[in-house]
Nucleic acid binder design. Structure first.
Lengths: 144, 144
DNA sequence: AACTATCATTTAACAGGTTAATAAAAATAG
DNA sequence: CTATTTTTATTAACCTGTTAAATGATAGTT
């Protein structure tokens, strides 16, 4: 029987926590959770999207995203409006103040990412990304 | 600037979710969360431990573990008693009914793990474990 | 022995992960 | 064109993740 320590979900979780330790503190200074930051980042890159697109882009389930957007909207970092064509869709746009906050934080996080890459090794990081992607692909395939 | 998709926390999260899809449904049938299952598994292997040891073993923070144990105890899967030597410590033991539940679920999960190993490739899985471990090591090192 | 610091655990508070249920708009079938 | 189905988003309910604060027990000091 496989030993207890051989747990893929646990190993992945542990790794994620370790990586978060690197990025979270800076975000917390601005009262941003990693997920809120992820959404802000995505919107900064694309300017605007509907909720479902953000959900896919950020790997967030709709219920989580719903809460996150409510929060970000309340803080004025994001603007929500029903989509023109399809009234079901919500159109999300990053606000000026959202963009300012992004510009304040992004460079610092970028430095940390570079430092992490250096410590871990560029090649290994690439390899890790590839393995993770392949894992998602091959494990997801099972559902009929 | 690094593109949005190059996010290690996100990649790790996505992978974890994909893997969970494999194991969660069976657990949910028995009203067990992945973490509750992890604790039960750890206790089955060692029979009994104090809370802090479980916490380290299962990579759970104490507040989470505290809630999990309260739940498992209420369901009679686990027995809690103050430790003999040190009254601060809580001694946790798996109950007979906890052991029975484990024996019911474990073989099914084992099969799923084997299937996953086969689909992903044994070598790749080993490599992934190693990379994740190394990542935790090298990223954790930063704090002084 | 009394005071203080440390340690193990719990509680609180807030956010996200997850499944199921709901509401409303849009697409499709008949 | 109405009835049904599908899609989009939200809400609810429960659990975990996470930081900070609180409680209670132990160890160390003076």
């Amino acid at each position: 029987m496989r030993t207890f320590q051989r747990s893929l979900p646990m190993a992945l979780m542990r790794a994620r926590e370790a990586v978060m330790c690197e990025f979270s503190p800076e975000l917390r200074k601005h009262d941003l959770s990693p997920q809120q930051w992820r959404v802000l980042r995505a919107l900064e890159e694309r300017s605007s999207m509907d909720a479902t697109t953000i959900s896919k882009h950020c790997a967030l389930l709709m219920p989580s995203l719903s809460r996150i957007l409510k929060n970000l909207e309340a803080r004025g970092l994001v603007i929500r409006a029903p989509s023109a064509g399809d009234q079901r869709r919500t159109h999300i746009e990053i606000s000026d103040s959202g963009r300012s906050l992004f510009k304040l934080i992004a460079p610092l996080q970028e430095l940390r990412y570079e430092s992490l890459t250096e410590r871990f090794g560029y090649g290994k990081l690439e390899l890790l990304y590839e393995l993770l992607e392949e894992l998602v692909e091959k494990v997801g395939k099972e559902e009929v």
